[in-house]
Design a protein around this nucleic acid. Structure first.
Lengths: 233, 233
DNA sequence: TTCATAGTTCGACGCTAGCCGAAGCATGGA
DNA sequence: TCCATGCTTCGGCTAGCGTCGAACTATGAA
């Protein structure tokens, strides 16, 4: 009776189609201007402006002024996580079309979730990290000594990550796979790493495209089985 | 532009204060009637009925008919998880409060339901039976081989129970916990068993009182965590 | 059978909130 | 200084939805 309205306020904010469009557009962690968001949401600039101020008041987004532009982004990865959770519910409902186009296919395979890898690849990576003993702990995942050495060898500055406030390892529920993938500072650092190595690159939308050699390297690094998916693209 | 409205539908459902109240009330996994939910949400029965049918259509809740009551519960733990996520976001701005306690402590803890154990203990026992792999099947619970051996070792004549017409295992909805406990022939036999072992005895009214040693034995048998509840009573 | 309780359906009312046009600031460039 | 661009604020319109009273169905008890 008391905490209901609290979540209702947030949920109602996400519940408007225009705002939901804006939020999902921001899910890849990029910052977008008010005009861009207006276009994506299919509303006029002044309408979008109103929505964005509401989202800001609720601390779902933050603003960054730059010249005469105002860049909006999600205020944190936790917002993206909740949005992914809602997508999961929406998918399970069956009210959503299960028919998936080629774009959806690519999204399922590998996409960006705020700032880290999601989709099949993301889930595989987390699974492998547990299987290889790099990470331990169900509730609160922690790097093992072996994991530290492993990721350091990949070129990730673990110590720098640990100095930050953000958790190094974190589970993040994947709406398409409905299993956890790896979030947190390490998840973000790894995605950066893959992109820097040219294993993968960001494409339009939230798609992450692995190159053939990148996919091979990824598979080998995490001791994954070679799947039909990889050879297919 | 595509998946925005999808999550918007779900979020909008959660976004109404009355529905949010109902959903949060259901977050502990209990099942509540439409009237109770109406009261908790502060709306009339007919309004609540409308809300509940919407929640059902979206598969956020499921219904269970029992007599002239209709018991509503969340359709899965994933729903509760999303709600918790929303609370987390809400917490950034708003305040949080805790829930209230019970009335009749002893009755809630353990009581007789027709001929089997109900209340916290009963619910715990059913939960444990699933967790330990003694029982399988959501709709129609069945003893596993492991379960047969387990209960036989406790001194229950499983074969005799199976010869009877009465179902061996049966879910029974618990009015205080609002979750299922174990009924059926096995549920009855187990309560007899506990009393015969002096783990518990029937008291005035419908209260079942566990002795300290009985509570300990019960806890150990079903591999339960030792709770403060036991030591407190 | 009759009454009581639980819940649903229908219709009407009223408020909220999203929407856009127009006007108002603010920043940056010429 | 003047204009263009990016965004916000204001005001009025409208649709949608949450709400309740009343009538109806279903289950159970006397």
């Amino acid at each position: 009776m008391k905490d209901g309205p609290v979540i209702a306020k947030i949920a109602a904010l996400i519940g408007d189609p225009a705002r939901a469009n804006m939020l999902t557009a921001l899910m890849d962690g990029r910052a977008l201007t008010a005009s861009e968001l207006a276009g994506l949401a299919g509303v006029t600039l002044q309408t979008a402006s109103g929505h964005l101020s509401k989202l800001g008041e609720a601390n779902l987004t933050t603003v960054e002024k730059q010249g005469r532009h105002r860049y909006f982004r999600l205020s944190g990865s936790d917002v993206a996580e909740v949005l992914e959770g809602l997508m999961g519910l929406a998918q399970r409902t069956g009210a959503v079309r299960m028919r998936t186009g080629p774009k959806d296919e690519a999204l399922r395979t590998a996409r960006i979730c705020y700032d880290h890898l999601a989709g099949e690849r993301g889930v595989e990576m987390l699974d492998a990290s547990y299987r290889l003993g790099l990470i331990e702990g169900a509730e609160k995942p922690m790097l093992t000594e072996k994991g530290r050495a492993f990721f350091r060898a990949l070129g990730v500055d673990i110590e720098a990550l640990e100095r930050r406030k953000r958790p190094v390892c974190r589970h993040c529920l994947d709406w398409s796979e409905r299993r956890n993938h790896l979030g947190g500072a390490l998840g973000a650092a790894l995605l950066d790493n893959f992109i820097a190595r040219n294993w993968a690159r960001r494409e339009k939308g939230r798609v992450i495209a692995f190159s053939p050699t990148g996919a091979q390297a990824f598979t080998k690094t995490f001791s994954l089985k070679v799947s039909a998916n990889f050879s297919a693209r």
